[in-house]
Computed example of a mutant assay.
Amino acid sequence: MILFLGVLMAATDGGVAAVDRALTILDAFTEADQSLTLTEISKRVGFYKSTTLRLAESLERFGYLRRLEDGAFRLGPKPLFLGALYQKHFKTSEFVPQTLRQIVDELHEGASFFVRDDDKRVCIHRVDSARAIRDSIQEGARLPLTVGASGHVLLAFSGGQGANYDRIREQLYAISMGERDPETAAIACPVFSVGQKLAGAISVSGPKYRFESADIPAMVAVLEKYSAQLSIAFGGIWPKKLA
């Protein structure tokens, strides 16, 4: 990888611009593309064909692209190798707690990250609010799937059937008011990993009376923002364009 970046830094386009352009070419490929012609790549990235060809040939030399017999390009094996390294060394403890702290700083309520474990949801990361009156959840707590916003999200994105789960899949969040506990409320969003598989759910929770008087759409927007960021860290894609 270092050698690859070194070659790009020495390219005639110069420095960081050449790196940016090469990575833009890789980003031009989507899940639906088995291969792309030089013309198709050029149109997608907005480069001259000569520039696209020069960068594509560099990417090919280092295994990031592979040229087919008909002259079209497809992704090579190197991105898969790097992806495997990323997954091998990825630790939720390096990413999730920091994200939860940012949620708490913005919303002033406790934030959690849940994963599904059979018929339960397990809190594997938690950051409490500094407020005196707050929702209390411990890391490692096993809670029901069928009540609570994060439980609804986990069920919705792991095959749950019914109008409620259809709505959650469409809007990408769930709200619960007094379900798990009559005095607490929560909002949750899904987090996606590689291949758009469900990685877990992040939620913000607190006393019900504060949620009842809060700007819920604004809270949802904050949670969506961090769900999208965390999905990218997990190798997934947030499926909705954020404002």
Rank of each mutant, 00 (worst) to 15 (best):
L230T: 10
G14N: 09
D181E: 15
I137S: 00
F113N: 03
G110A: 13
G63E: 00
G236E: 07
S35M: 05
S42V: 03
K241Q: 15
L107Y: 03
A243H: 06
S50F: 13
Y64E: 00
P97V: 13
G162T: 05
L154I: 04
E94W: 12
Q161M: 07
R21K: 15
I187Q: 07
E139Q: 10
A199Q: 11
H125L: 05
A233H: 07
P217M: 13
L38D: 04
A149E: 02
G159F: 09
P144A: 08
F192P: 08
F234R: 09
V204M: 07
Y86K: 13
D135G: 11
M1F: 02
S231A: 03
A188L: 06
A185D: 07
E224C: 08
L3H: 14
A149P: 06
T92R: 12
G71F: 03
V222P: 03
A84Q: 10
R67H: 02
L3A: 11
T184V: 09
D33L: 01
E57W: 05
R126F: 14
S231W: 04
A156S: 14
A156M: 04
K197F: 08
I202W: 10
P77C: 01
A228Q: 03
G162Q: 08
I2P: 03
H108T: 14
F234I: 10
G148M: 04
K120P: 01
R210M: 11
E224M: 08
A111H: 07
G46E: 03
S42P: 02
E69D: 11
S213V: 07
A243M: 11
D166Q: 09
D166Y: 09
L223C: 12
R74P: 00
K78Y: 00
P77S: 09
I103P: 04
E170K: 12
A22G: 12
F114N: 05
D33K: 05
L107D: 11
Q34S: 15
T39S: 15
G206H: 01
T12V: 13
K91C: 03
W238N: 09
Y173T: 01
V153R: 06
A228S: 14
P77V: 12
S136Q: 13
I168R: 05
R101S: 15
S42L: 07
N164I: 10
S93F: 10
E60H: 04
E106H: 13
L38G: 06
D135H: 11
E60V: 01
S129R: 05
I25Q: 00
Q138F: 05
K78F: 00
V19G: 08
R169K: 13
L8P: 02
F4D: 00
Q87N: 09
T24K: 15
G206I: 11
T12W: 09
V45E: 04
V153F: 02
M9E: 13
S136R: 12
T92S: 14
